[in-house]
Design a binder for these strands. Structure first.
Ligand SMILES: [Mn+2]
Ligand SMILES: [Mn+2]
Ligand SMILES: [Zn+2]
Ligand SMILES: [Zn+2]
Lengths: 149, 149
DNA sequence: TCCTTATTGCAAATCATTTGCAACTATCAT
DNA sequence: ATGATAGTTGCAAATGATTTGCAATAAGGA
């Protein structure tokens, strides 16, 4: 309901067109709480309209990315594919469970300190940072302990 | 000279074979200070023996990765290709200049605090972390200031 | 020196994403 | 409403990155 609305606004502002395909893709993205690959998103979208093609998914995602409404990221998980993050505005960080592949978002102000220290030490300007932690999520950790421990 | 030696040791320990191709690839990796893609590494390797094939590069890199002697990472730079980091043992972090695409390594103990805080808040177990900062390196920043401002 | 079997080069396959194009359709001006 | 204009779609083929099957080759131990 949020990304959908903002995208709608920007489509109207430029001379683009709101098509049924785009509407379905946007609404599907809104309803998702995960970070889907293009193919995963296609699967969800095709539950509503099975004629929508993968290339339309990509074209819509790339436009949203250019608008700053989603971010594409690649995690070091099993897939080598890009995952699309609809919660774009506002930097946040990720934990990836290497067992169940769940992605958990988090925030931590210490990242700002890391950026500042790097800038001081090197004279560089840091525009944004990516932090990804890998390990076992709470659930998988419990499951492992219960089973083998 | 370092990775070469360690790899040599492990080859001898298992029942693998030290071939001239592998020796050249290992020595080239040792001499590099950058984080090459497979193709970039191939270029350097072919300066010594132009008959060495890309698939041999990949096979050697994947073996080194399995041995924990290099790490494969994907940065959000212009290429979508994996970059291979020979400085594997010991976690360290990266800055990527979005102008000249230079990669600068750094370390910061605050990352440990971030990991610890995440573990406390979620009950997860964090095994390792990836931190990549993006921006303008010191040189590119100076160049930009001198030119436009 | 000979055998065994790991390794190589090459071509073809696979995976993820992009692009060209003809058919289609949203939007706007009659 | 109707038609013209130009953005958009589905599909197939192209591209870029990496992997795999296979026959020929060559390490390294007997
Ligand atoms: Mn996210
Ligand atoms: Mn590194
Ligand atoms: Zn898990
Ligand atoms: Zn730079």
């Amino acid at each position: 309901m949020d990304l959908s609305l903002e995208a709608d606004k920007r489509i109207r502002a430029s001379h683009r067109r709101m098509t049924p395909q785009r509407r379905i893709i946007l609404e599907t993205l809104d309803a998702l709480d995960i970070h889907p690959t293009a193919e995963e998103l296609l699967g969800r979208v095709q539950e509503v309209d099975s004629s929508i093609h993968l290339s339309t998914i990509y074209r819509t995602l790339r436009w949203l990315e250019a608008e700053g409404l989603v971010q594409a990221r690649i995690f070091n998980d099993d897939r080598r594919a890009e995952r699309f993050d609809p919660a774009a505005p506002g930097e946040h960080y990720h934990f990836v469970c290497q067992e169940c592949h769940a992605v958990i978002e988090f925030n931590n102000l210490l990242v700002n300190a890391i950026k500042a220290q790097f800038e001081l030490h090197t004279g560089a300007r840091v525009d944004f940072g990516s932090v990804v932690l890998y390990g076992l999520c709470g659930d998988c950790r419990k499951a492992l302990l219960a089973e083998a421990g």
